[in-house]
Computed example of a mutant assay.
Amino acid sequence: MAKTNKYKTLNGLVSKYRDDLKEVDYLLLFAHNGVGKTRTSMEFKDKGKRLNNGNGDTLYFNAYTEDLFIWDNDIIGDTDRHIKLTTTSNFFRGFKTLALEEKIFSHLERYATFDFRFDYDNSKVIFSKNEKNPQYHPNNGKPEYITNENVKISRGEENLFKWCFYLTLCELAIEDEEGTGPYNWVRNFYIDDPISSLDDNNAIGVATDLISLTKKSKGKIKTIISTHHSLFYNVLWNELRGEKTKRYFLYKNKKEELTLQLTDDTPYFHHVALLAELKTAADNNKVYSYHFNALRSILEKTASFFGKKDFRFCLEEMEDEILYNRALNLLSHGKYSIYQPVELADDNKDLFKNIIYDFIDKYEFEVVQLNS
């Protein structure tokens, strides 16, 4: 049985986190919604202030961070739409003194096609998009695309912008080798579920870019990441191989105690959650290329649990064992196929469904149906 630690208060839990970070560079936490991930991140931040005479040591990203960006939709005029920044927060300490736009855009262009600019005097962000010109014709001399200013971007695009803003601040803190910049106080990054309203492709991109950036710190700044998203967690798990990391499943037991269960040696609960996600994809007929990667990963971990070296162990005695083996080898082939979210053809969807249903039946998993 994996080692567990139980806590009756958030203070005790975050003290454990801070003790762990004296030994490792990363804490990776999987927890379902409702456990208190956001409250825990705020308690970690507050504890840092108590330990440092009121001075913070944690640059965090959570639901409170997102609330620092406030939409003004110009209800009366319906033209001057923008986001107002709450610049009294330490989060925006370098807003007017540093040229952030270019750095933010270097992250944003990985995910999105819209543009933005800052109104520094009024602490505003104004968004624009290049859109097809309805009056365009090859022979009428009008431009094919026109720029629409002051646009209202989607919720997913908005979250991407906020995330790229945060990544830029992390980058500034990491690059401040002399310790003289506006983010020289940062000793920890605490990131709680940064992928709300994002599709799976962007969720994977966020995970890989985050780890790529934080590795540049080389342990100078510690990183905590908590999430309920099993695919996101799975990618983070793989990206952090070889790094000094502790991985936990966080949940509440029957006594309502916060419980940390180590999952370093064997991936426990997050793979069961991922299996539920894959079954939901199969049930809803929404099967993409990366789902085969995730399924193969689960089979590999299951085989390892039984002391076997090859995922084919899990397929033994299934009626279509040979076909399943060929499909998993072919459709999960290549290190980066998980990053190409292509919806599968109907015959491959059916094949995926048959494999996962037979696998669940063989090992008698009790898989909870997730919301579609």
Rank of each mutant, 00 (worst) to 15 (best):
M1F: 14
K3C: 12
T4G: 00
N11F: 05
G12V: 08
S15F: 08
D19C: 05
D19M: 11
D19N: 12
V24Q: 03
Y26N: 00
L28G: 02
L29K: 06
F30Y: 14
G34W: 06
T38W: 05
F44V: 00
K45N: 13
L51Y: 04
G54V: 06
D57T: 12
D57A: 10
T58R: 01
Y60P: 01
T65W: 02
N73S: 09
S89N: 14
N90R: 13
F95M: 03
L100E: 09
L100F: 05
L100Y: 01
E109D: 12
A112H: 01
D115I: 10
D115K: 11
D115M: 11
R117L: 13
D119I: 08
F127P: 05
N130T: 13
K132Q: 15
N133H: 05
N133Q: 07
H137C: 00
P138S: 13
P138G: 02
P138Y: 11
T147L: 11
K152W: 12
N159H: 12
F161G: 03
F165D: 06
F165R: 00
E175S: 14
D176V: 02
E177A: 10
G181Q: 06
I191P: 04
D193R: 03
P194K: 01
P194W: 04
I195R: 00
S197A: 11
L198G: 02
A203Y: 00
A203W: 02
A203E: 15
I204Q: 09
A207Y: 09
I211K: 04
T214C: 13
I224D: 03
T227V: 07
Y233R: 14
V235G: 04
V235R: 12
L236Y: 04
R247S: 10
F249V: 10
K252I: 00
N253F: 05
K255Y: 09
E277S: 15
E277L: 15
D283W: 04
Y288I: 00
S289D: 10
L295S: 04
L295I: 01
R296G: 06
S297A: 10
K301G: 06
T302K: 10
A303Q: 08
F305Q: 10
G307F: 01
E321W: 03
E321L: 00
L328R: 08
L330H: 12
F359W: 05
F359G: 08
D361E: 15
K362Q: 05
F365N: 07
F365E: 09
S372A: 14
